[in-house]
Design a protein around this nucleic acid. Structure first.
Lengths: 213, 213
DNA sequence: GACAGATTCAAACACGTGTTTTAAACTGGT
DNA sequence: ACCAGTTTAAAACACGTGTTTGAATCTGTC
Protein backbone atom coordinates (compact mmCIF):
# COMPACT_ATOMS: atom_id res chain seq x y z
CA UNK A 1 0.00 0.00 0.00
CA UNK A 2 2.41 2.69 1.18
CA UNK A 3 5.87 2.90 -0.25
CA UNK A 4 8.60 1.28 1.78
CA UNK A 5 9.86 3.61 4.46
CA UNK A 6 13.30 2.74 5.65
CA UNK A 7 13.98 2.58 9.35
CA UNK A 8 17.60 3.23 10.20
CA UNK A 9 16.99 2.43 13.91
CA UNK A 10 15.68 -0.98 13.04
CA UNK A 11 18.46 -2.60 15.03
CA UNK A 12 17.53 -0.78 18.21
CA UNK A 13 13.86 -1.49 17.77
CA UNK A 14 14.54 -5.18 17.42
CA UNK A 15 16.73 -5.14 20.51
CA UNK A 16 13.97 -3.49 22.53
CA UNK A 17 11.23 -5.76 21.28
CA UNK A 18 13.37 -8.82 21.91
CA UNK A 19 14.06 -7.72 25.47
CA UNK A 20 10.38 -7.37 26.25
CA UNK A 21 9.43 -10.65 24.66
CA UNK A 22 12.28 -12.70 26.11
CA UNK A 23 11.47 -11.40 29.58
CA UNK A 24 7.79 -12.07 29.05
CA UNK A 25 7.86 -15.59 27.62
CA UNK A 26 11.39 -16.93 27.78
CA UNK A 27 13.97 -17.59 25.11
CA UNK A 28 12.52 -20.74 23.56
CA UNK A 29 8.92 -19.59 23.58
CA UNK A 30 9.64 -16.44 21.60
CA UNK A 31 9.96 -16.68 17.82
CA UNK A 32 12.02 -14.33 15.72
CA UNK A 33 8.89 -13.65 13.72
CA UNK A 34 7.16 -12.35 16.84
CA UNK A 35 10.13 -10.14 17.61
CA UNK A 36 10.22 -8.72 14.10
CA UNK A 37 6.49 -8.15 14.01
CA UNK A 38 6.60 -6.16 17.24
CA UNK A 39 9.62 -4.24 15.99
CA UNK A 40 7.96 -3.57 12.66
CA UNK A 41 10.78 -5.23 10.80
CA UNK A 42 11.25 -8.09 8.40
CA UNK A 43 12.08 -11.62 9.52
CA UNK A 44 15.51 -11.48 7.97
CA UNK A 45 16.42 -8.35 9.92
CA UNK A 46 17.39 -10.34 13.00
CA UNK A 47 19.89 -12.41 11.09
CA UNK A 48 21.15 -9.40 9.17
CA UNK A 49 21.78 -7.26 12.25
CA UNK A 50 22.68 -9.89 14.84
CA UNK A 51 23.67 -13.03 12.98
CA UNK A 52 21.24 -15.38 14.68
CA UNK A 53 18.69 -15.57 17.46
CA UNK A 54 21.21 -16.61 20.09
CA UNK A 55 23.50 -13.66 19.40
CA UNK A 56 20.52 -11.36 19.66
CA UNK A 57 19.74 -12.86 23.04
CA UNK A 58 23.32 -12.33 24.14
CA UNK A 59 23.11 -8.66 23.17
CA UNK A 60 19.89 -8.31 25.12
CA UNK A 61 21.57 -9.79 28.16
CA UNK A 62 24.56 -7.54 27.67
CA UNK A 63 22.41 -4.42 27.63
CA UNK A 64 20.56 -5.75 30.66
CA UNK A 65 23.79 -6.28 32.53
CA UNK A 66 24.96 -2.78 31.72
CA UNK A 67 21.71 -1.32 33.01
CA UNK A 68 21.03 -3.53 36.01
CA UNK A 69 24.66 -3.43 37.05
CA UNK A 70 24.36 0.33 37.38
CA UNK A 71 21.14 -0.02 39.38
CA UNK A 72 22.73 -2.61 41.66
CA UNK A 73 25.42 -0.17 42.68
CA UNK A 74 22.98 2.58 43.67
CA UNK A 75 23.59 3.38 47.30
CA UNK A 76 21.12 3.22 50.13
CA UNK A 77 20.88 5.73 52.93
CA UNK A 78 19.90 5.86 56.59
CA UNK A 79 20.14 3.25 59.32
CA UNK A 80 20.69 -0.39 58.45
CA UNK A 81 17.01 -1.12 59.02
CA UNK A 82 15.94 1.73 56.77
CA UNK A 83 18.37 0.53 54.14
CA UNK A 84 16.82 -2.93 54.24
CA UNK A 85 13.38 -1.41 53.72
CA UNK A 86 14.70 0.57 50.76
CA UNK A 87 16.36 -2.49 49.31
CA UNK A 88 13.21 -4.60 49.49
CA UNK A 89 11.03 -1.87 48.09
CA UNK A 90 13.30 -1.25 45.11
CA UNK A 91 13.73 -4.92 44.40
CA UNK A 92 10.01 -5.63 44.49
CA UNK A 93 9.18 -2.66 42.32
CA UNK A 94 11.71 -3.84 39.80
CA UNK A 95 10.00 -7.22 39.73
CA UNK A 96 6.35 -6.21 39.82
CA UNK A 97 6.22 -2.57 38.82
CA UNK A 98 4.44 -1.77 35.60
CA UNK A 99 6.46 1.32 34.77
CA UNK A 100 10.03 0.78 35.87
CA UNK A 101 13.06 -0.55 34.04
CA UNK A 102 10.45 -2.94 32.81
CA UNK A 103 11.77 -6.30 31.85
CA UNK A 104 15.31 -6.42 33.17
CA UNK A 105 14.68 -8.14 36.50
CA UNK A 106 12.08 -10.40 34.95
CA UNK A 107 14.51 -11.65 32.36
CA UNK A 108 17.09 -12.27 35.04
CA UNK A 109 14.63 -14.28 37.04
CA UNK A 110 14.02 -16.41 33.95
CA UNK A 111 17.73 -17.00 33.59
CA UNK A 112 17.94 -18.17 37.19
CA UNK A 113 15.28 -20.83 36.80
CA UNK A 114 16.20 -21.81 33.27
CA UNK A 115 19.84 -20.95 32.82
CA UNK A 116 21.64 -20.36 29.55
CA UNK A 117 25.34 -19.70 29.03
CA UNK A 118 24.52 -16.05 29.72
CA UNK A 119 23.79 -16.85 33.36
CA UNK A 120 27.43 -16.59 34.37
CA UNK A 121 27.60 -13.03 33.08
CA UNK A 122 24.46 -11.98 34.93
CA UNK A 123 25.53 -13.58 38.15
CA UNK A 124 28.88 -11.86 38.17
CA UNK A 125 27.68 -8.44 37.06
CA UNK A 126 24.40 -8.18 38.95
CA UNK A 127 23.65 -10.98 41.37
CA UNK A 128 26.90 -10.91 43.27
CA UNK A 129 26.97 -7.11 43.73
CA UNK A 130 23.35 -7.19 44.82
CA UNK A 131 23.96 -10.04 47.24
CA UNK A 132 27.05 -8.30 48.59
CA UNK A 133 25.09 -5.14 49.25
CA UNK A 134 22.28 -7.03 50.95
CA UNK A 135 24.71 -9.06 53.03
CA UNK A 136 26.35 -5.83 54.16
CA UNK A 137 23.02 -4.47 55.38
CA UNK A 138 22.06 -7.69 57.12
CA UNK A 139 25.53 -8.08 58.58
CA UNK A 140 25.18 -4.72 60.26
CA UNK A 141 21.79 -5.63 61.69
CA UNK A 142 22.93 -9.02 62.95
CA UNK A 143 26.34 -7.68 63.97
CA UNK A 144 27.97 -10.53 62.09
CA UNK A 145 30.44 -10.73 59.26
CA UNK A 146 28.74 -10.29 55.85
CA UNK A 147 30.56 -13.44 54.76
CA UNK A 148 29.09 -15.65 57.49
CA UNK A 149 26.71 -18.43 56.57
CA UNK A 150 23.95 -17.02 58.77
CA UNK A 151 24.00 -13.69 56.97
CA UNK A 152 24.05 -15.41 53.63
CA UNK A 153 21.05 -17.54 54.46
CA UNK A 154 19.15 -14.53 55.76
CA UNK A 155 19.91 -12.62 52.58
CA UNK A 156 18.30 -15.38 50.59
CA UNK A 157 15.35 -15.40 52.94
CA UNK A 158 14.81 -11.78 51.99
CA UNK A 159 15.30 -12.22 48.27
CA UNK A 160 13.26 -15.42 48.22
CA UNK A 161 10.24 -13.65 49.62
CA UNK A 162 10.48 -10.91 47.01
CA UNK A 163 10.89 -13.28 44.10
CA UNK A 164 8.00 -15.42 45.30
CA UNK A 165 5.49 -12.75 44.43
CA UNK A 166 6.85 -12.66 40.91
CA UNK A 167 7.14 -16.41 40.46
CA UNK A 168 3.69 -17.20 41.72
CA UNK A 169 2.01 -14.15 40.23
CA UNK A 170 -0.47 -16.18 38.15
CA UNK A 171 -1.55 -18.09 41.23
CA UNK A 172 -2.07 -14.93 43.21
CA UNK A 173 -4.16 -13.35 40.51
CA UNK A 174 -6.32 -16.44 40.41
CA UNK A 175 -6.45 -17.00 44.16
CA UNK A 176 -6.27 -13.59 45.75
CA UNK A 177 -7.69 -11.04 43.36
CA UNK A 178 -8.62 -8.47 46.00
CA UNK A 179 -5.07 -7.57 46.96
CA UNK A 180 -3.87 -7.88 43.40
CA UNK A 181 -6.38 -5.39 42.14
CA UNK A 182 -5.07 -2.53 44.27
CA UNK A 183 -2.71 -0.17 42.52
CA UNK A 184 -0.29 0.18 45.44
CA UNK A 185 -0.14 -3.51 46.20
CA UNK A 186 3.60 -3.52 45.68
CA UNK A 187 4.14 -1.07 48.51
CA UNK A 188 1.97 -3.14 50.83
CA UNK A 189 3.87 -6.28 49.98
CA UNK A 190 7.21 -4.55 50.41
CA UNK A 191 6.14 -3.27 53.79
CA UNK A 192 5.06 -6.71 54.95
CA UNK A 193 8.28 -8.35 53.78
CA UNK A 194 10.35 -5.68 55.48
CA UNK A 195 8.36 -6.04 58.73
CA UNK A 196 8.69 -9.80 58.58
CA UNK A 197 12.41 -9.81 57.89
CA UNK A 198 13.26 -7.12 60.40
CA UNK A 199 11.35 -8.99 63.10
CA UNK A 200 13.24 -12.13 62.17
CA UNK A 201 16.62 -10.41 62.16
CA UNK A 202 16.02 -8.68 65.48
CA UNK A 203 14.98 -11.97 67.00
CA UNK A 204 17.99 -13.79 65.61
CA UNK A 205 20.34 -11.04 66.75
CA UNK A 206 18.92 -11.30 70.25
CA UNK A 207 19.10 -15.09 70.46
CA UNK A 208 22.62 -15.02 69.02
CA UNK A 209 23.81 -13.00 71.98
CA UNK A 210 23.23 -15.92 74.31
CA UNK A 211 25.38 -18.39 72.45
CA UNK A 212 28.75 -17.92 70.84
CA UNK A 213 28.21 -17.94 67.08
CA UNK B 1 17.78 -58.06 16.33
CA UNK B 2 15.44 -59.41 18.97
CA UNK B 3 11.84 -60.12 18.20
CA UNK B 4 9.33 -57.50 19.28
CA UNK B 5 8.38 -57.95 22.89
CA UNK B 6 5.01 -56.49 23.69
CA UNK B 7 4.64 -54.28 26.73
CA UNK B 8 1.11 -54.29 28.10
CA UNK B 9 2.01 -51.60 30.69
CA UNK B 10 3.19 -49.25 28.00
CA UNK B 11 0.56 -46.73 28.98
CA UNK B 12 1.79 -46.55 32.56
CA UNK B 13 5.40 -46.30 31.52
CA UNK B 14 4.62 -43.38 29.25
CA UNK B 15 2.70 -41.66 32.02
CA UNK B 16 5.65 -42.03 34.39
CA UNK B 17 8.24 -40.90 31.87
CA UNK B 18 6.09 -37.93 30.90
CA UNK B 19 5.75 -36.88 34.54
CA UNK B 20 9.48 -36.86 35.08
CA UNK B 21 10.23 -35.01 31.89
CA UNK B 22 7.49 -32.41 32.20
CA UNK B 23 8.62 -31.64 35.74
CA UNK B 24 12.22 -31.46 34.62
CA UNK B 25 11.96 -29.31 31.53
CA UNK B 26 8.43 -27.99 31.21
CA UNK B 27 5.61 -28.83 28.82
CA UNK B 28 6.86 -27.07 25.71
CA UNK B 29 10.47 -28.13 26.05
CA UNK B 30 9.64 -31.83 26.19
CA UNK B 31 9.01 -33.68 22.93
CA UNK B 32 6.82 -36.74 22.64
CA UNK B 33 9.77 -38.50 21.08
CA UNK B 34 11.78 -37.95 24.25
CA UNK B 35 8.93 -39.28 26.35
CA UNK B 36 8.55 -42.38 24.22
CA UNK B 37 12.27 -43.03 24.13
CA UNK B 38 12.49 -42.92 27.92
CA UNK B 39 9.41 -45.12 28.18
CA UNK B 40 10.78 -47.56 25.63
CA UNK B 41 7.77 -47.10 23.41
CA UNK B 42 7.05 -46.02 19.87
CA UNK B 43 6.29 -42.43 18.94
CA UNK B 44 2.75 -43.28 18.02
CA UNK B 45 2.07 -44.82 21.43
CA UNK B 46 1.31 -41.50 23.08
CA UNK B 47 -1.33 -40.67 20.51
CA UNK B 48 -2.72 -44.18 20.62
CA UNK B 49 -3.07 -44.26 24.40
CA UNK B 50 -3.80 -40.63 25.18
CA UNK B 51 -4.99 -38.98 21.98
CA UNK B 52 -2.47 -36.16 21.93
CA UNK B 53 0.31 -34.54 23.94
CA UNK B 54 -2.01 -32.18 25.77
CA UNK B 55 -4.29 -34.95 26.99
CA UNK B 56 -1.26 -36.82 28.22
CA UNK B 57 -0.23 -33.73 30.17
CA UNK B 58 -3.70 -33.48 31.67
CA UNK B 59 -3.49 -37.08 32.86
CA UNK B 60 -0.10 -36.40 34.39
CA UNK B 61 -1.55 -33.44 36.26
CA UNK B 62 -4.53 -35.52 37.35
CA UNK B 63 -2.31 -38.21 38.83
CA UNK B 64 -0.23 -35.50 40.47
CA UNK B 65 -3.29 -33.95 42.02
CA UNK B 66 -4.45 -37.29 43.36
CA UNK B 67 -1.06 -37.92 44.93
CA UNK B 68 -0.15 -34.45 46.18
CA UNK B 69 -3.67 -33.87 47.42
CA UNK B 70 -3.26 -36.85 49.72
CA UNK B 71 0.13 -35.58 50.91
CA UNK B 72 -1.29 -32.11 51.54
CA UNK B 73 -3.80 -33.53 53.99
CA UNK B 74 -1.20 -35.33 56.07
CA UNK B 75 -1.43 -34.03 59.60
CA UNK B 76 1.28 -32.43 61.65
CA UNK B 77 1.85 -33.03 65.35
CA UNK B 78 3.15 -31.18 68.37
CA UNK B 79 3.11 -27.49 69.24
CA UNK B 80 2.37 -24.91 66.59
CA UNK B 81 6.05 -24.07 66.33
CA UNK B 82 7.00 -27.71 65.91
CA UNK B 83 4.31 -28.07 63.28
CA UNK B 84 5.77 -25.16 61.35
CA UNK B 85 9.19 -26.81 61.43
CA UNK B 86 7.65 -30.03 60.16
CA UNK B 87 5.79 -28.22 57.42
CA UNK B 88 8.89 -26.44 56.16
CA UNK B 89 11.01 -29.56 56.28
CA UNK B 90 8.49 -31.63 54.33
CA UNK B 91 7.90 -28.91 51.77
CA UNK B 92 11.59 -28.38 51.14
CA UNK B 93 12.30 -32.09 50.86
CA UNK B 94 9.51 -32.39 48.35
CA UNK B 95 11.13 -29.64 46.29
CA UNK B 96 14.79 -30.53 46.58
CA UNK B 97 14.97 -34.12 47.77
CA UNK B 98 16.45 -36.60 45.32
CA UNK B 99 14.47 -39.60 46.54
CA UNK B 100 10.99 -38.45 47.48
CA UNK B 101 7.73 -38.28 45.53
CA UNK B 102 10.10 -37.02 42.93
CA UNK B 103 8.61 -34.68 40.43
CA UNK B 104 5.20 -33.72 41.77
CA UNK B 105 6.12 -30.49 43.56
CA UNK B 106 8.50 -29.54 40.81
CA UNK B 107 5.83 -29.81 38.17
CA UNK B 108 3.47 -27.76 40.31
CA UNK B 109 6.08 -25.06 40.65
CA UNK B 110 6.35 -24.98 36.86
CA UNK B 111 2.61 -24.56 36.57
CA UNK B 112 2.72 -21.61 38.94
CA UNK B 113 5.27 -19.69 36.95
CA UNK B 114 4.00 -20.76 33.54
CA UNK B 115 0.36 -21.63 33.95
CA UNK B 116 -1.70 -23.85 31.69
CA UNK B 117 -5.43 -24.56 31.95
CA UNK B 118 -4.47 -27.26 34.45
CA UNK B 119 -3.45 -24.63 36.98
CA UNK B 120 -6.97 -24.20 38.30
CA UNK B 121 -7.18 -27.88 39.18
CA UNK B 122 -3.86 -27.86 40.99
CA UNK B 123 -4.67 -24.72 42.91
CA UNK B 124 -7.96 -26.07 44.17
CA UNK B 125 -6.79 -29.57 45.00
CA UNK B 126 -3.33 -28.87 46.40
CA UNK B 127 -2.43 -25.22 46.84
CA UNK B 128 -5.50 -24.15 48.76
CA UNK B 129 -5.42 -27.08 51.21
CA UNK B 130 -1.71 -26.53 51.76
CA UNK B 131 -2.18 -22.83 52.29
CA UNK B 132 -5.08 -23.45 54.65
CA UNK B 133 -2.98 -25.80 56.73
CA UNK B 134 -0.08 -23.38 56.87
CA UNK B 135 -2.38 -20.48 57.72
CA UNK B 136 -3.79 -22.55 60.56
CA UNK B 137 -0.35 -23.10 62.03
CA UNK B 138 0.69 -19.48 61.64
CA UNK B 139 -2.64 -18.25 62.96
CA UNK B 140 -2.05 -20.18 66.18
CA UNK B 141 1.44 -18.74 66.54
CA UNK B 142 0.31 -15.16 65.87
CA UNK B 143 -2.94 -15.65 67.77
CA UNK B 144 -4.80 -14.23 64.80
CA UNK B 145 -7.54 -15.53 62.54
CA UNK B 146 -6.16 -17.79 59.80
CA UNK B 147 -8.12 -15.69 57.33
CA UNK B 148 -6.47 -12.39 58.27
CA UNK B 149 -4.28 -10.62 55.78
CA UNK B 150 -1.29 -10.68 58.12
CA UNK B 151 -1.42 -14.44 58.45
CA UNK B 152 -1.82 -14.82 54.73
CA UNK B 153 1.19 -12.66 53.98
CA UNK B 154 3.27 -14.53 56.53
CA UNK B 155 2.27 -17.84 54.98
CA UNK B 156 3.62 -16.64 51.67
CA UNK B 157 6.78 -15.43 53.36
CA UNK B 158 7.32 -19.01 54.49
CA UNK B 159 6.48 -20.64 51.19
CA UNK B 160 8.42 -18.04 49.24
CA UNK B 161 11.61 -18.84 51.08
CA UNK B 162 11.20 -22.57 50.43
CA UNK B 163 10.47 -22.14 46.75
CA UNK B 164 13.39 -19.78 46.31
CA UNK B 165 15.89 -22.56 46.83
CA UNK B 166 14.22 -24.51 44.09
CA UNK B 167 13.79 -21.62 41.68
CA UNK B 168 17.32 -20.36 41.97
CA UNK B 169 18.95 -23.77 42.24
CA UNK B 170 21.18 -23.25 39.19
CA UNK B 171 22.46 -19.99 40.63
CA UNK B 172 23.24 -21.58 43.94
CA UNK B 173 25.15 -24.42 42.37
CA UNK B 174 27.21 -21.90 40.43
CA UNK B 175 27.62 -19.41 43.24
CA UNK B 176 27.67 -21.39 46.44
CA UNK B 177 28.98 -24.85 45.70
CA UNK B 178 30.19 -25.62 49.22
CA UNK B 179 26.75 -25.79 50.81
CA UNK B 180 25.26 -27.40 47.76
CA UNK B 181 27.74 -30.25 47.85
CA UNK B 182 26.71 -31.43 51.29
CA UNK B 183 24.29 -34.35 51.35
CA UNK B 184 22.12 -32.99 54.16
CA UNK B 185 21.92 -29.48 52.81
CA UNK B 186 18.15 -29.68 52.70
CA UNK B 187 17.94 -30.18 56.44
CA UNK B 188 20.22 -27.24 57.05
CA UNK B 189 18.18 -25.00 54.80
CA UNK B 190 14.94 -26.14 56.41
CA UNK B 191 16.35 -25.41 59.83
CA UNK B 192 17.43 -21.93 58.85
CA UNK B 193 14.09 -21.10 57.26
CA UNK B 194 12.25 -22.35 60.32
CA UNK B 195 14.50 -20.35 62.65
CA UNK B 196 14.07 -17.24 60.52
CA UNK B 197 10.30 -17.54 60.27
CA UNK B 198 9.76 -18.39 63.91
CA UNK B 199 11.85 -15.41 64.97
CA UNK B 200 9.81 -13.23 62.67
CA UNK B 201 6.49 -14.58 63.89
CA UNK B 202 7.43 -14.26 67.56
CA UNK B 203 8.52 -10.70 66.95
CA UNK B 204 5.35 -9.83 65.06
CA UNK B 205 3.19 -11.45 67.72
CA UNK B 206 4.92 -9.39 70.37
CA UNK B 207 4.66 -6.09 68.53
CA UNK B 208 1.02 -6.79 67.64
CA UNK B 209 0.12 -6.82 71.34
CA UNK B 210 0.91 -3.14 71.66
CA UNK B 211 -1.50 -1.97 68.95
CA UNK B 212 -4.99 -3.11 68.17
CA UNK B 213 -4.85 -5.14 64.97
C1' DG C 1 -4.46 -73.54 14.22
C1' DA C 2 -7.43 -69.66 12.98
C1' DC C 3 -9.70 -65.76 13.67
C1' DA C 4 -10.85 -60.80 15.67
C1' DG C 5 -9.44 -57.19 18.31
C1' DA C 6 -5.76 -54.70 20.60
C1' DT C 7 -1.30 -52.96 20.30
C1' DT C 8 3.19 -51.72 18.15
C1' DC C 9 6.02 -50.25 14.47
C1' DA C 10 8.34 -47.56 10.70
C1' DA C 11 7.22 -44.22 7.59
C1' DA C 12 5.12 -40.22 6.13
C1' DC C 13 2.41 -35.94 6.75
C1' DA C 14 1.39 -31.01 7.81
C1' DC C 15 3.08 -27.32 10.09
C1' DG C 16 6.11 -23.92 12.56
C1' DT C 17 10.76 -22.90 13.53
C1' DG C 18 15.47 -20.43 12.59
C1' DT C 19 18.03 -19.38 8.78
C1' DT C 20 19.51 -18.30 3.97
C1' DT C 21 18.98 -16.56 -0.44
C1' DT C 22 18.35 -13.28 -4.04
C1' DA C 23 16.53 -9.26 -5.74
C1' DA C 24 14.84 -4.75 -4.77
C1' DA C 25 15.08 -0.27 -2.42
C1' DC C 26 17.35 3.14 -0.07
C1' DT C 27 21.51 6.19 1.27
C1' DG C 28 25.11 9.35 0.60
C1' DG C 29 28.89 11.03 -2.28
C1' DT C 30 30.47 12.66 -6.89
C1' DA D 1 22.17 11.12 -12.85
C1' DC D 2 24.95 7.60 -11.57
C1' DC D 3 27.10 4.32 -8.59
C1' DA D 4 28.91 1.49 -4.52
C1' DG D 5 27.56 0.13 0.00
C1' DT D 6 23.92 -0.62 3.21
C1' DT D 7 19.51 -2.06 4.43
C1' DT D 8 14.93 -4.25 3.51
C1' DA D 9 11.71 -7.56 1.31
C1' DA D 10 9.53 -11.91 -0.07
C1' DA D 11 10.33 -16.45 -0.87
C1' DA D 12 12.43 -20.63 -0.09
C1' DC D 13 15.26 -23.89 2.61
C1' DA D 14 16.47 -27.44 6.15
C1' DC D 15 15.05 -29.19 10.22
C1' DG D 16 12.26 -30.56 14.33
C1' DT D 17 7.72 -30.76 16.01
C1' DG D 18 3.01 -33.26 16.96
C1' DT D 19 0.22 -36.24 14.55
C1' DT D 20 -1.60 -39.79 11.31
C1' DT D 21 -1.36 -43.79 8.52
C1' DG D 22 -1.50 -48.59 7.27
C1' DA D 23 0.78 -52.77 7.74
C1' DA D 24 2.71 -56.01 10.99
C1' DT D 25 2.57 -58.25 15.35
C1' DC D 26 0.80 -59.74 19.59
C1' DT D 27 -3.17 -61.53 22.72
C1' DG D 28 -6.88 -64.06 23.99
C1' DT D 29 -10.74 -67.23 22.51
C1' DC D 30 -12.88 -70.73 19.97
Amino acid sequence: MRSVQPNPQSRGKILAAAGELFAEKGYEAVTVRQICTRAGANVAAVNYHFGDKESLYKEVVASLVAFAGRAASESHTGSAEQQLRQFISRYLHGLLGADRPAWSLRLMQREFANPSPALKLIVEAVVQPTERRLRGIIGRILKLSPASTSVRLCAHSVIGQCLHYKHAQPVFVHLWPDLWGKPDRVDELAEHIADFCLAALRGMARSKKGRND
